Simulated assay, not measured.
Amino acid sequence: MKLLDKNNLLNRQKFDIKIIKNIPQEAGMGGGSMNVASLINFFINQKLLKIKKNELKKLTSQLGSDVILGIKPTNTILSENGDIKRYNNNTKFHTLVVKPNFGCSTKNIYSKVKSFSKPQFSFPKTKMFEVKYLKTLNNDLEKIAFKKYSKLKKIKLFLSNTHNNMFVRMSGSGSSIVAYFDSKRSCGNAYSQFKRKFSSHWCIASKTI
């Protein structure tokens, strides 16, 4: 809000903002960035903020590198140079998102990184939404997080053994783990199995948009 005021983009209007979170903190799911994106979307939709595409990109980059993903987020790929590309894609996944009763500090996890693998999204293509391709990808931060929190590795192994899962990934720097399914029924069955095994952990069945 200070940045919007500084650039006089809201005509000095003031707002009382209440944030209701549907995901836990320290889950590695970009919650803070999506808070920002949700506000920007609201201001644009209500015609309170009039901003050109190139100005919007500059604004979001000042707030966070992944904020731009929350501006019309469906089927969007963010490349390493900050450009975004959107696709018409019919691939939909049912997801089981789980988080143990502890969080991961993004700052702490990234401080342990020695090197990253070669960027995959320099030249985005529609194949990036295909299951066959997604299965080949990895989250470089998993090794670091699993070394610090052995329970995360245990949770991923459990989800990887659920029936009909397509693949399982840690989200961001953790501590949430996401299992992907091609049907609501398979996802629901995995949800029931997980809650029986890890009753104290946060867990929700969802789907991609």
Rank of each mutant, 00 (worst) to 15 (best):
I40P: 02
N75P: 02
K47G: 03
M34I: 09
F198N: 01
N108G: 01
T76D: 05
S192D: 14
E80M: 07
N189M: 11
M29H: 06
K156Y: 06
K197C: 14
A205H: 10
L48M: 12
K18L: 03
Y110K: 08
G172K: 02
N7S: 15
A37C: 11
N81M: 03
T208P: 01
I109Q: 01
A179V: 06
N8R: 12
G82Y: 07
T60Y: 01
K143D: 08
S117M: 14
S192Y: 07
S173D: 04
F129D: 00
I177H: 00
G64A: 14
G82H: 05
N101Y: 11
V131P: 04
K92C: 12
K118L: 08
N81F: 04
M166P: 04
L4N: 05
L69N: 05
D182G: 02
K85Y: 03
G32A: 09
W202R: 02
V98L: 04
I20G: 01
Q13H: 05
I17V: 13
M128V: 10
D83T: 15
N35V: 08
G172N: 07
G82P: 06
L159A: 11
N101M: 07
I84E: 01
N45W: 02
P119R: 10
A37R: 00
S122E: 15
N35D: 15
P100A: 04
S200G: 04
I40R: 00
S206Y: 07
N138L: 15
M166I: 12
N108Y: 13
R196L: 14
I209V: 15
A145C: 12
G32C: 07
L152V: 02
L159E: 07
N35Q: 09
K50H: 13
L10V: 15
K197R: 13
A145H: 00
Y133I: 01
T60A: 04
L9A: 05
V36M: 03
P24H: 00
L78V: 13
I177L: 05
C203I: 11
L152D: 02
S79Y: 01
T136C: 08
K85V: 08
N90Y: 14
I177E: 00
K151R: 14
T76K: 14
K184D: 11
K143T: 14
E130T: 04
I144V: 09
K47A: 03
